[in-house]
């Protein structure tokens, strides 16, 4: 498992190449790249996204998501790289990759990690637009996506 939080821009291509260079005997790699959009959720021009993190709880929340993915899916390795601090439109916010013998496990693990990251990762996210700033929370769609992975009707 490789997990990194960074306040510096990074290239998803480099992360994928490095991830793949360490694989041995896998038959599938699935990766996802999340990019800061040019417009806010309400259509205004985005100046930047600001991802505030907690000095300990943020990495703890991401570690838990990765560890659960590792136990739940038949994957051999995974990588998560997540930005914090100010992020400019067009820059990568998150890179997620999973490798497995066969494709389905890697698809599921990447999908699971992203759905959990979108709702459970400890970040406070603010959109700074040309007409003001707004703190954002996960959408109903985000919560619905996470719900599909629920293993218990009590969760």
């Amino acid at each position: 498992m490789s997990i990194r939080l960074t306040d510096q821009p990074f290239a998803a291509e480099g992360e994928l190449a490095e991830f793949m260079a360490r694989l041995t005997g896998d038959g599938a790699v699935v990766n996802f790249v999340g990019i800061a959009r040019s417009h806010s959720s309400s259509g205004e021009i985005l100046k930047r996204l600001v991802l505030q993190h907690h000095p300990r709880l943020t990495s703890r929340s991401i570690d838990e998501i990765a560890e659960t993915a590792r136990k739940r899916f038949d994957i051999s390795s995974l990588r998560i790289v997540h930005r914090y601090g100010p992020v400019a439109p067009g820059e990568v916010i998150v890179f997620v990759a999973a490798a497995s013998k066969h494709r389905r496990s890697a698809f599921n693990a990447a999908d699971y990690m992203m759905d959990r990251l979108k709702t459970d990762a400890v970040f406070w996210k603010r959109e700074d637009t040309t007409s003001g700033s707004r703190w954002i929370e996960p959408t109903a769609d985000d919560y619905g996506a996470r719900e599909q992975w629920s293993e218990s009707c009590l969760e």
Partner: peptide, 10 residues
């Protein structure tokens, strides 16, 4: 003591 609003997710 820390005051934590609802998290936004990543």
């Amino acid at each position: 003591v820390e005051f934590l609003p609802p998290v936004s997710g990543g």
